[in-house]
Amino acid sequence: MSIQHFRVALIPFFAAFCLPVFAHPETLVKVKDAEDQLGARVGYIELDLNSGKILESFRPEERFPMMSTFKVLLCGAVLSRVDAGQEQLGRRIHYSQNDLVEYSPVTEKHLTDGMTVRELCSAAITMSDNTAANLLLTTIGGPKELTAFLHNMGDHVTRLDRWEPELNEAIPNDERDTTMPAAMATTLRKLLTGELLTLASRQQLIDWMEADKVAGPLLRSALPAGWFIADKSGASERGSRGIIAALGPDGKPSRIVVIYTTGSQATMDERNRQIAEIGASLIKHW
């Protein structure tokens, strides 16, 4: 067993022997300050990975656009099909120029040879490739089937209704393509630590998230040396920005953090900075 597999395998073990964890309200002060700075709603939740206990939250049951954070859930659904023998990570999918949508930095380079399901999930999570996400959605039956998968997991909140890039419209009070911080955190925890996926698939999912290449300005920018993070960011219209992450010190994840914001007129750089500052406060008061 590799060191990485050993780390994931021990998560349920540590759950039975973990020391108590305590929240620090200073982080919530920073979350509220971020709302003021951005002139927008901010949703935040911090969940103990082992016990599932909510350590701190702000607007945990308000809806926010999922943006590209849905791609982790999508690849979780794909992996569940792999575990059930209904899909193969090595299966090659061919597509055409007509399938390409905006922001497809990986898939646009493989029009001649296609990409495997594994490569598409990697592109969707690590590079947030939109065409990769659409091709993967097709393999499971579309957005409604992803919503059904989540319902079967016990998540009756999170929903995907449209494809890339339309799902990023982020219209106020529109429940399409939205989640709540509490629902997303719970669902992510189930995918990473529960029995829904095999150990190999849980490890694959967290490996893809750990290799995320487009979330550098967010929580990763505040991460001390030696800390672990596996994450997925998202951005969409109407000043929306978000990130879902499993992180912790000593090279292993111990908490789930979900941050969403929407309705801001601030620049992308400012939205990134506010999320990074929330992360810095979280780490300082860990």
Rank of each mutant, 00 (worst) to 15 (best):
I3D: 10
H5R: 07
F6I: 12
A15C: 15
V21R: 01
F22G: 14
H24Y: 03
H24R: 06
K30R: 09
K30T: 09
V31C: 12
A34S: 07
R41E: 06
D48G: 03
L49V: 13
L55K: 03
S57L: 04
S57Y: 07
F58V: 04
P60V: 09
P60I: 10
E61L: 15
R63K: 07
M66C: 04
F70G: 03
L73A: 09
C75S: 04
R81C: 03
V82G: 03
G85R: 11
G85M: 09
E87T: 06
E87M: 08
Q88E: 13
G90N: 15
G90K: 12
H94A: 11
D99A: 10
E102R: 11
Y103K: 02
Y103W: 09
P105H: 04
H110N: 11
L111D: 05
M115G: 01
E119S: 07
A124D: 00
M127T: 09
S128R: 00
D129E: 00
K144S: 15
L150P: 00
H151C: 05
M153L: 13
H156G: 09
W163Q: 07
E166P: 02
E166D: 12
E166V: 07
L167M: 12
E169V: 08
P172C: 08
P172H: 09
D174P: 01
R176W: 05
R176L: 08
D177H: 01
T178I: 01
M180R: 09
P181G: 00
T187I: 03
T187K: 10
L188T: 06
L192F: 11
G194S: 13
L196R: 13
A200I: 08
I206G: 05
D207S: 15
E210G: 06
A215T: 05
R220A: 01
L223K: 02
L223Q: 01
P224I: 01
A225P: 15
S236D: 06
E237N: 15
E237S: 12
R238W: 12
R238H: 14
G239D: 02
G239V: 01
R241A: 04
R241C: 04
G242E: 00
I243W: 02
I244D: 00
I244R: 00
A245V: 06
P249V: 02
D250H: 10
K252S: 11
P253C: 07
S254I: 06
Y260L: 11
T261A: 08
T262K: 10
M268P: 09
M268L: 13
R273S: 09
G279L: 04
S281L: 10
L282M: 12
H285R: 06
